[in-house]
């Protein structure tokens, strides 16, 4: 790290932080993926986590995922809340025995010295009702601030994880705010340069926060969104249905990924409708259930694909869809 020029250093530059994490996890052996090209609420939704966490095959990946939480928008005025932010996601299956040490070393790699700071693992049981997923783990605290989530997945998309994957999620803006010693996310130095060359988080994202907050809370076309939800749900089911391929007495699925895209879509559309305040409390539950049903069906399909480890599963005679 000492060899890095100042503008590349993780404690000076937002992108420097991302690059340092990518370098660290690449060096460990993860495939460094790019963000998934759809709107999602968290890095977990990326099929590289949700689907790859399932099945017996080993998997190590890391990536940045832009995450959208329409309800969290504050028109760029709240120092700590955004409707669009970045997560850095690491997923390793099976979870290695030294995952905590690996994580702590990654903190060292971005300039957090564990002899100088107070780093703590505080209970946080993770659950995603929309994904039909849960796991046990912690919030990782650095001097009282939650900088990451650490989860051992037990179940995803309604399927037991066997073996269990370890998931690390770094909240990049929070981490950067801490490393750079600023009080507002918007004040972050994005590119690590000074003077006229300096680009701040504000320069990149303030307008977007304002525009999207307006959109999410006031103008998002609800009639269209309701229709989109319905369409995504229908398409997901259609693709799942069409994907089953009964070869001999083994069942195989050929379209889990495209079906899952529609599940992601439905989830995001639901979040938008929720932000617009047009979904009542009881309806809310039922929408969450509907997305979960899609996610579970996608998980079921995925474990019958090649990458989902179908070849290692055997199916009893007579089991059919």
């Amino acid at each position: 790290m000492d060899s890095l020029p100042p503008h590349m250093r993780p404690e000076r530059s937002f992108q420097g932080l991302i690059l340092a994490l990518q370098r660290y996890w690449a060096d460990y052996g993860c495939v460094i993926l790019q963000p998934y090209d759809m709107e999602v609420g968290a890095g977990t939704f990326h099929p590289a986590t949700t689907l790859r966490a399932l099945g017996p095959r080993p998997w190590k990946a890391a990536y940045v995922q832009p995450s959208r939480r329409p309800k969290d928008g504050r028109y760029g005025e709240n120092p700590n809340r955004l409707q669009h932010y970045y997560q850095f996601q690491v997923i390793i299956k099976p979870s290695p025995p030294d995952l905590q040490e690996l994580y702590l070393k990654s903190l060292t790699a971005i300039g957090i010295d564990s002899h100088l700071h107070d780093i703590r693992f505080v209970e946080d049981d993770w659950e995603s009702p929309t994904l039909g997923a849960w796991g046990l783990g912690w919030e990782c605290w650095c001097d009282g601030m939650e900088v990451s989530q650490f989860t051992y997945f037990q179940q995803v998309a309604g399927v037991e994880c066997a073996p269990v994957a370890g998931e690390l999620t770094y909240g990049l803006e929070r981490l950067a705010v801490y490393l750079q010693g600023v009080d507002r996310i918007m004040d972050l130095n994005f590119n690590g340069r000074d003077g006229a060359d300096r680009v701040s988080y504000r320069d990149v994202f303030l307008q977007a926060e304002q525009e999207y907050s307006r959109h999410n809370f006031e103008y998002a076309d609800t009639a269209m969104l309701f229709e989109q939800f319905r369409m995504a749900e229908e398409a997901c089911r259609k693709y799942l249905e069409a994907g089953w391929n009964n070869g001999g007495n083994r069942k195989e699925h050929l379209m889990a990924l495209p079906a899952y895209d529609q599940c992601i879509k439905a989830s995001h559309v639901f979040n938008l409708l929720d932000a617009r305040g047009v979904i009542s409390v009881t309806e809310r539950q039922s929408y969450i259930m509907r997305v979960r049903e899609l996610a579970k069906a996608c998980g079921e399909a995925w474990v019958h694909t090649e990458a989902g480890g179908a070849a290692t599963l055997s199916f009893p005679q007579g089991e059919g869809k």
Partner: peptide, 28 residues
């Protein structure tokens, strides 16, 4: 605050860090 470590700088960084988090939370 109760830390879990005798830090190499005597705790200055830890206290400053917690103060910043508290400031952020209290601002909220």
């Amino acid at each position: 605050l109760t830390a879990n470590i005798e830090a190499s700088d005597g705790g200055k960084t830890i206290v400053a860090g917690n103060e910043r988090v508290i400031r952020a939370r209290l601002s909220d």
